[in-house]
Simulated scan of single mutants.
Amino acid sequence: MDDSSTLQKVAAEVIGTFVLVLFGCGSVVYWSETAGEPAFVSTTTTVGLAFGLALMVMIYAFGRISGAHFNPAVSVGAALGRRLPWNQVPTYIAAQLAGAILGAAVLFGLLHGFDGFSAEGNMGQNGFGDASVGGYAMWAALLLELVLTMIFVWVILAVTDERNEHPGLAPLAIGFALVAIHFVAIPATGTSVNPARSIGPALFAGSEAIGQVWVFVVAPLLGGAIAGYTYDLLFGETRPRAAAGAFAPPGAVPGYGAPDQYQQQWNEPAAAAPHQQHQWGQPQWTPEQIAAWQAQQAQAQPGQQQGWPDDEGDAERTQIRPPR
C-alpha cells in the first residue's frame, strides 16, 4: 500500500535527484580540475560508475517512498505505462528539477575551492557539436539520447513490473543500465537520458550550454514516452495489484518472489487508470461501475433501503462497499 504523503514523495525526489547531479557531475568536474595530477585518474568508466552507483543507492534508499524516478523522462514513461497517475507527474517533475538545480548549485559553490575555477563550459553539462568531445552532430545527439532513454525506461518498467519475481535486484539492474548507457554516450554527448540532470548544470555552465539544453530535454522525454506507451504492447499488460503479494508463489518473501515496497510503488492499483483519480492513491469508480453496483444492491434486497452491515456483521446482508 502507498502510505507516503505528497511531501514525503517530493522530499525523496528532490534528495535523489540532488545526489545524482552532485555525485555524477561532480565526478566529471573535480577530475577536470585535477587532471594534471597523476594520482587522480578519471575515465569514462569512473564517471559512468559515479552516475550509476549514485542512482542505485538512492533507489534503495527512497524507492519505497516515491518509486525513485529522479528523472522527468521516467515519470512521463511511468504515466504513459499506467504506473503513475497523471495528476502526480507535474509534482514529480517539479521536485526533480528542484533537486537537480540544487545539486548543481552546491557543486558550483564547492568547486570555487579551486583557485581560478571557472564554471563556463565546466559543470559536467551535456553538449553536441563544438561543445562535445568528438564534435557530435545535433541530429545524432537527438537520436542517441532518444534511443538510450527509451531503452533505459523499458528496463525500469520491466524490473519494476509486478510479474518480475526478483524485485530486490531492480535497483541494481537500473543502476548498471545507467552505467552502460554512460559508457556509450559520454564521448558523444556527455550522456543525459534525464532532462533534470541536463538542466541543472546547464544553468551554471554558460550561454552555450543553455542554448543546447533543449536537445537533452526533448529527446529524453520522447524516448521515455515511447517506452511507456509501448511497454504493455510489447510485453503484455501489467496486472493491477489486488493486495501486497497477491501474485506471489507460496514461500516467497518480499524482494525475492513477492513484491517489496519499491515494486509496490510502481504497481499501485490507483496508477492503472490515471483518468479515474481524485486523490493520490485513492481509486474512484466510474459512473458505469457505480450504476452496476447500485443495480446489484437493488436486486439483492428489493424494496429495502440500502445501508452498511453493522459492526458485528450480518451474513444475510453482506454488501460490497465501493471505494471512498
Results as ranks from 00 to 15, higher is better:
residue 118 S to V: 12
residue 138 M to H: 10
residue 123 M to Q: 03
residue 139 W to N: 01
residue 93 I to W: 04
residue 77 G to Q: 10
residue 125 Q to C: 04
residue 126 N to W: 11
residue 146 L to Y: 08
residue 95 A to W: 11
residue 91 T to D: 00
residue 66 S to Y: 11
residue 102 L to T: 13
residue 147 V to T: 13
residue 71 N to A: 09
residue 99 G to E: 04
residue 159 V to N: 07
residue 98 A to N: 05
residue 187 P to F: 14
residue 130 D to T: 15
residue 109 G to V: 07
residue 156 I to W: 08
residue 144 L to C: 13
residue 188 A to M: 09
residue 184 V to H: 01
residue 84 L to Q: 03
residue 102 L to N: 04
residue 95 A to L: 05
residue 142 L to W: 10
residue 83 R to E: 01
residue 59 I to T: 08
residue 147 V to W: 11
residue 66 S to H: 15
residue 112 H to W: 08
residue 147 V to G: 08
residue 98 A to R: 08
residue 96 Q to Y: 05
residue 63 G to F: 07
residue 165 E to H: 02
residue 150 M to P: 00
residue 101 I to C: 05
residue 65 I to T: 15
residue 64 R to Q: 14
residue 106 V to L: 14
residue 136 Y to S: 07
residue 96 Q to I: 12
residue 106 V to M: 07
residue 133 V to N: 06
residue 110 L to C: 10
residue 175 G to F: 06
residue 97 L to D: 03
residue 144 L to S: 15
residue 111 L to C: 01
residue 94 A to Y: 11
residue 153 V to Y: 05
residue 77 G to E: 08
residue 86 W to N: 05
residue 160 T to W: 02
residue 128 F to D: 02
residue 130 D to A: 15
residue 131 A to W: 00
residue 157 L to N: 04
residue 126 N to E: 10
residue 76 V to H: 04
residue 57 V to E: 01
residue 105 A to C: 02
residue 68 A to M: 06
residue 124 G to R: 12
residue 171 P to M: 12
residue 160 T to Y: 02
residue 146 L to E: 04
residue 81 G to K: 14
residue 59 I to L: 07
residue 188 A to K: 13
residue 79 A to P: 03
residue 155 V to P: 00
residue 189 T to K: 13
residue 178 L to W: 13
residue 96 Q to A: 02
residue 178 L to F: 14
residue 77 G to F: 10
residue 188 A to W: 00
residue 123 M to A: 07
residue 139 W to G: 09
residue 188 A to P: 00
residue 59 I to R: 07
residue 63 G to C: 09
residue 126 N to I: 13
residue 137 A to T: 08
residue 74 V to Q: 08
residue 79 A to R: 06
residue 171 P to W: 11
residue 192 S to L: 12
residue 108 F to T: 08
residue 167 P to W: 06
residue 149 T to E: 03
residue 141 A to E: 08
residue 125 Q to R: 02
residue 186 I to C: 04
residue 165 E to N: 01
residue 130 D to V: 15
residue 160 T to C: 05
residue 86 W to V: 14
residue 177 A to T: 15
residue 120 E to F: 08
residue 119 A to D: 07
residue 121 G to R: 09
residue 56 M to N: 06
residue 78 A to M: 12
residue 84 L to V: 10
residue 103 G to M: 10
residue 173 A to Q: 09
residue 91 T to N: 04
residue 128 F to I: 07
residue 128 F to A: 05
residue 67 G to A: 14
residue 124 G to C: 06
residue 184 V to S: 08
residue 135 G to E: 01
residue 160 T to F: 01
residue 176 F to C: 06
residue 138 M to D: 00
residue 84 L to E: 04
residue 184 V to G: 05
residue 114 F to N: 06
residue 88 Q to N: 01
